[in-house]
Structure formats: structure tokens, C-alpha cells
Simulated scan of single mutants.
Amino acid sequence: MILGEYATAEAIESMRHRLGLDRSLWEQFIGFVHNFFTHGDTGVSIVFETSSRELIAERAPVTLLLIAMTCLFAIIVSLVLATLAATHKDGLLDHMIRILPAVTLGMPIFWVGLLLILVFSVRLRWFPVGGVGEGWLGILYSLALPAITVGLSQIPSLVRSLRAQMLEVLESDFVVTLKAAGIPGRVILVKHVLRNSALPALMLLGVNIAYLMGGTLVIEQVFGLKGIGSLLFSAISNRDFPVIQGIALYCAISVVIIGFVIEVASGYLDPRTKGEQ
């Protein structure tokens, strides 16, 4: 594939030696593992002829910032909506909050992105159609709409989980005691109810982080962002296997790291999850 349809046998044999395909499968695997653990690399890109680690590192900042903005947006909106729904239980606002965000669950994420581009970029011109701006403000501004797009897919499940937990805490005995002691409702809600209700939603976010990363990679292609997602699609179309392997491994490592962070945060929210010393 690299050399073309009319490559000579000598050229093919030389390329096989260059790629290490003339070695045994076991030797190739040992070399791959050794190269990854010593250099953080999965091989040289077949298309770009450079280290896959360098290609991924060049694109990673955009993807990581997009994931961070998506999580921040999803958490803030979920906290607000779940709080409003729990404090207006069985009211019109509660029903609207439970129904309307769930609409996005039945829509493909790339289709939601295209709709948002048509409305907020093409018609209203509030956001750029695609690409990454210059400077920190320009970058944040250009990533806002993609972050909202991915965040919309995470909000319904987070709101449902957080609302159910808040209703359970609001009906608990210690909340009734705090109200009887004359403590203001806002203090009870923020300091006690939210902290005791956030743990299940936080764990759910940790479970969904892999799906969030997958959605981010797809949205990068929709908005024309030069992140890991666009690199992955390019590598797949060109059968650039070292780059595909590198992206898969680094995404897996990121999921493990984020899961560890979630565990630490859950220990802070609920000391009982830390276990015995």
C-alpha cells in the first residue's frame, strides 16, 4: 500500500525490513512494548514518517482542553438543573427539566453538532463555524460550541442521577434537624445536600468518561478541529496503524488516570469511601 501497485519485489522486501515485518511476531511484540515503555511511542507514522508520539502530543492540547470544557459545562448545567428539579419536585419546572434534556439522548452527537452550527454559527453568527482561534480567548471561544455539543449528551443522565439523590437527602432526618435548628435553606442546600448528593453523579461521570472522549473525537471532525480526533480519522483512512495504536493506548491511559482522579474526589466528598487506614 505504501509503495504503490507497481512496486518491485526488492522495494517491498526493503520496506518489510524497514517496518520490522521480517522479524518474528514475538520479536515485533517485544520491540513494540519496549519502545512504548521507554519512549512512549508506538512506532513511526507510515504517512507522516515521524514519531506517533510527536504527532499525538502536537494535537493533544486541543482535545484535552475540549474534554475539560465539556466536563465543566456538563457539571455546572447538571448541578443547576438538578437543584431546580429537586427543589420543585413534581412541579412544571421539574417535569420540563426531566423531559427536555433527554431529547438529546435520541440524537446522534454529530447531528446535534451540525444543528448547533446551523443555528448558532450560520444564522445567529455567535460562534465560528469551525477551526481553532488564536490566543487563549480565541481558543476558548472556538471550542465553546463543540464543548456544549458533547456536554448535551452527558447532561440528561447526570441530572437524573443527581436529582434522585438530592430528593433522598432532602427527605433525610439530618436535613429536617438542620431546618428545625433555623439554618438557612441555601446553606443546607449547598453545604450539606449537594455534597452528600454529588458522589453518585460524580461516579457516573467517571463511568461515562470513555464515551465522552469518544464523542469528543467525533465532534472534532464535525467542527474541523485539529485535535486527536481528526488525526485518528486521518490515520484510519490511510491505514496508519502506528498512529491508531498510539491514540488507542493514550486514550486508555487517560481513562485510567481520570478514573483515579474520580476515586480521589469521591473520597473527599464521602470519607467512608476511603476505607480503613
Rank of each mutant, 00 (worst) to 15 (best):
N196V: 07
I228S: 02
S14Q: 14
F174S: 08
F48K: 15
I75W: 02
L81H: 01
T149Q: 05
L114Y: 13
I12D: 01
V193S: 06
F32Y: 14
A180W: 04
A201M: 04
V256P: 04
A102D: 04
V62M: 10
I148R: 03
M107R: 09
S51D: 12
A198I: 08
I188E: 06
V175L: 04
A180M: 11
T63A: 07
A86R: 01
A201S: 09
G91K: 08
V243N: 02
F233P: 02
P271E: 05
G224T: 07
S24E: 07
N238L: 12
W136K: 01
V175G: 07
G130K: 07
T273Y: 11
V44E: 14
F233N: 10
Y141E: 13
G259S: 13
V62N: 02
E263R: 05
A164L: 05
V176M: 15
L115H: 07
I247M: 05
F32D: 10
M15V: 07
A82V: 03
T87H: 09
I76V: 11
S153K: 08
V218K: 03
Q28M: 09
V112N: 02
T87P: 00
L199T: 15
I117V: 14
A9S: 12
M107E: 11
L204Q: 01
K274S: 07
L225K: 01
L93E: 05
V255D: 01
I2P: 00
A86T: 06
A68V: 14
T8N: 04
A82C: 03
F241T: 13
H95N: 14
L232P: 01
I30Q: 15
A180F: 05
E58F: 12
I257V: 14
I228P: 00
E220V: 11
W126Y: 14
T87L: 12
R23Q: 15
I183M: 11
A102G: 07
L3V: 05
P271D: 03
F241R: 06
L92V: 15
